[in-house]
């Protein structure tokens, strides 16, 4: 655990140097990568550790984005708005988890997939609060330059990624993560051994929700404008899974590496083929599932074994 923490600290410090390059393109790319990393790590709590095929990432991300945006619109300071958005997603995940985590397999997957659709419709119809289908503009602080702004959001996303990573590292090497691994391998046996499976699964779902929601809130402030189909996009749920699969499910660094690899592919391949954007993503998923279902690093790396 100490080794992983040290390695991560070095990694995050290196990433923190990116703004020195001073290039707006690299800054945008870095922020996106960190955001993807947070979404992937957040999914890893429920999908990687507990082994539940959650498609709820988009729901949490969108909920956080709208919660943060609405709070800011109502005059809540930005940092507090992000925290509130994370807390709301956490509470929402708790309630949702109590209901949905009784389902298994395909049923859980579908139910979690549907949540984003329902939220999107609700946000669409709550026009007074959310602007509905017209989208929502966020206040832009006028005392800052564009460059300093993008630097600010980069560091905000970096801080969130670091916190998410710390939480995941802690969870993996604690009783919580151990219990979740038991659940992932054999839930009824875990129950028999005294694991309060409901509590553990809901806890994992809450962590998942909180971090994905916070990422959504920062994203909303960063891009200044959100609309329902953008932030409740089911592709967020799919990308989270793909990134973790790429990097290796259940590993501590997997989601981050997966996010980096995924974004590189996205940038290298898709920028040139905008029209077949989703098709190429689909092809990538198919190839990944067929040929590398255990991730790019299919070797058993030393840090992938979380000992009690």
């Amino acid at each position: 655990m100490r080794k992983s923490a040290l390695l991560a600290a070095v990694l995050f410090l290196l990433v923190a140097l990116v703004p020195l390059a001073g290039d707006a393109y690299w800054l945008r790319l870095g922020t996106t990568m960190l955001m993807y990393g947070v979404i992937a790590m957040a999914w890893n709590f429920i999908g990687g550790l507990a082994g539940y095929p959650s498609f709820a990432s988009a729901a949490f991300f969108g909920l956080g984005a709208y919660a943060g945006a609405v709070a800011q619109k109502l005059g809540v300071p930005m940092g507090l708005a992000w925290t509130l958005a994370g807390a709301l997603s956490l509470a929402f995940a708790a309630l949702l988890g109590l209901a949905l985590l009784r389902l298994r397999g395909h049923y859980f997957a579908i139910a979690s997939l549907v949540v984003a659709e329902v939220l999107r419709e609700l946000v669409n119809s709550a026009t007074d609060l959310t602007g509905g289908g017209m989208g929502l503009n966020l206040p832009v602080p006028h005392d800052a330059t564009v460059a300093s702004q993008s630097e600010f959001f980069f560091y905000a996303m970096l801080a969130l990624a670091a916190i998410t990573f710390a939480a995941m590292l802690w969870a993996t090497h604690s009783k919580l993560g151990f219990g979740l691994r038991c659940i992932q391998q054999n839930e009824s046996a875990a129950d028999m051994l005294g694991v309060n499976t409901t509590l553990y699964k809901v806890a994992a779902f809450m962590l998942s929700g909180a971090f994905a929601g916070a990422a959504g809130a920062i994203y909303a402030s960063w891009v200044h404008y959100i609309e329902p189909p953008d932030v409740f996009d089911v592709l967020y749920s799919v990308k989270a899974i793909v990134m973790v699969l790429l990097g290796g499910a259940g590993s501590v660094f997997g989601p981050l590496f997966g996010a980096a690899i995924f974004l590189s592919l996205e940038e290298l391949v898709w920028r040139n083929y905008l029209q077949v954007h989703t098709g190429v993503l689909g092809l990538m998923i198919v190839l990944l599932v067929l040929f590398l279902p255990k991730g790019v690093f299919s070797l058993r790396l030393p840090w992938r074994k979380g000992k009690p």
Binding site: G47, P53, G105, H106, A109, V238, I241, V242, L245, V276, H277, T278, G279, L281, G282, L283, M284, I285, V286, L288, V289, L290, P293
Partner: peptide, 17 residues
């Protein structure tokens, strides 16, 4: 489940695109 679901999802992204 996650893998079979991802596989048909990927195929669907290709077809719908």
């Amino acid at each position: 489940v996650l893998l079979t679901l991802s596989l048909t999802f990927g195929l669907d992204l290709m077809l719908s695109n």
